[in-house]
Structures are given as C-alpha cells and as structure tokens.
Amino acid sequence: MLEARLEQANLFKKVVDAIKDLVQDCNFDCNDSGIALQAMDNSHVALVSMMLRSESFAPFRCDRNIALGINLTSLTKVLKCAQSDDILTLKAEDAPDVVELVFESAESDRISEYSIKLMDIDQEHLGIPETDYGATISMPAAEFQRICRDLIALSESVSIECSKEGVKFACQGDIGSGAVTLRQHTNVDKPEMNVEINMSEPVSLTFSLKYLVNFCKASGLSNQVRLCLSNEVPLLVEYSLANNSHLRFYLAPKIGD
C-alpha cells in the first residue's frame, strides 16, 4: 500500500497546477524511492518529468510499485478543496481502484477525505538519455517567466543563444523584434537573483514560446530555474524542489529556417 504524507499540500497543488495544461491523464508511479510522473503532451513536443522523492514526505510508505492513473482535471478539482496550509496524505491499496487524499488542518481539528477514481493509462515510458549540455544557465525563475511572457507578445518563437557575451533571448514578429541579454551576475545579498552561465560550446536554438510560457507556471515552486541547452537537442527546463525532488520539462527545438 501507499501512504505518503506531505507537510504542505500546497507543494502538490503547485506541481499539478504547473503541468495540468500540458498533460491530461498521467500515471503517478509510486515505489519506495518516491512518486514519479513522466508524460508527453499530445503533440509529442514537450515532456514533463516529475520526481517527488520519499524524503519529501514524512512518513512515506510504499511496499510495492503502484501506478496511479489520474486525470489531472479531476485531481485539480479535489486539490482545490485543500487549504494551502493543510497537510496532505495520499493513500492507495496495492491494486487500487481509487486514490485517497486526506487534508488535515495544522491549526484546527478538521480532517477532509476525498477519493478519485483511477484510470487505466497505457503510458509509453521513455528513456531520457544522459546529456552533456553545451550550455547551462541558472537564473531567477521569475526573470525567465518575465522574458517569455514579454516576448510572446511579439512572436511565437524565441531564439536562445548562449555565447561568451552571455545568453540572449531574441524574437522577431510582425510588429517588430525584441531581445533580452543576460550576463553572469552574482548578488551576494540575494543569491536567488544570481545568473550563472556555464558554457562548453556556443549554442543557438529556437523554441516555441507557447510551451515555455506554459512551463513557467512552475515558477512559484523554486526561486531559480535551470536551462540546459545543446545544439539540436531538446531544451531542459528544471525547477529544483526540496529534498532532491524536481520538476523538469523538455521541449523539442524548432528546426530549419
């Protein structure tokens, strides 16, 4: 059986909120290392990869591998019933028909119990190859969100170029063009504002802003976001969570010109 108690229901709410517009029906794969999710969007352009490690829960118990097939719209409806300060416990039997969600108020004696009917999801599990990226950029998540939201007003696509000069986000549209360049930057007082650029080779790739704006819904989960780029391979956008947990998005580049 599964029993996973999360001190902050809000974390799970934010994760589901960040992915629900990309993917609809997902298996939450539970085993003794934690709860993982991997799902591609319908067009096979973007992939979500979530890992909530067992250390993120207290307690965490999962005796055997359980796949919880859940419709994220249904999950969102139930998670709306949790207050952000509530404690969330996920429970399921070994061969479950439902997943149970228990919300407990830390301050009052209220206990709310919900269940969601599970789905049989025939999910293709993809192997994500280890990649030595040509450029890795860590930057404030809010800054990345701002850039993507600003540029989508002008264009569908953004080119991300990383060179010795820094990282340049540029777009061209019908009304004109826009570009934002960031250089490596260390803020001693506010390290969450740092911009760190590690580059082994110059990279230049073009991506759909629609997807990037979608990924940025995860901005509330982490102060910093990490972008990993190599020429002609999918972009990795990573939000690190506490206890070595993470929410990652992969996006296929646009090709040709």
Binding site: L126, S208, P234
Partner: peptide, 14 residues
C-alpha cells in the same frame, strides 16, 4: 519559418 520538431527522435521507449 522554422518548423516544430518532436521529442520522438530524441527519447526512445525504455
């Protein structure tokens, strides 16, 4: 205009 690629080429089934 550049066309959108997919992930199928990069991530194989495991």
């Amino acid at each position: 205009a550049p066309r959108q690629g997919t992930l199928n080429r990069f991530f194989g089934k495991s």
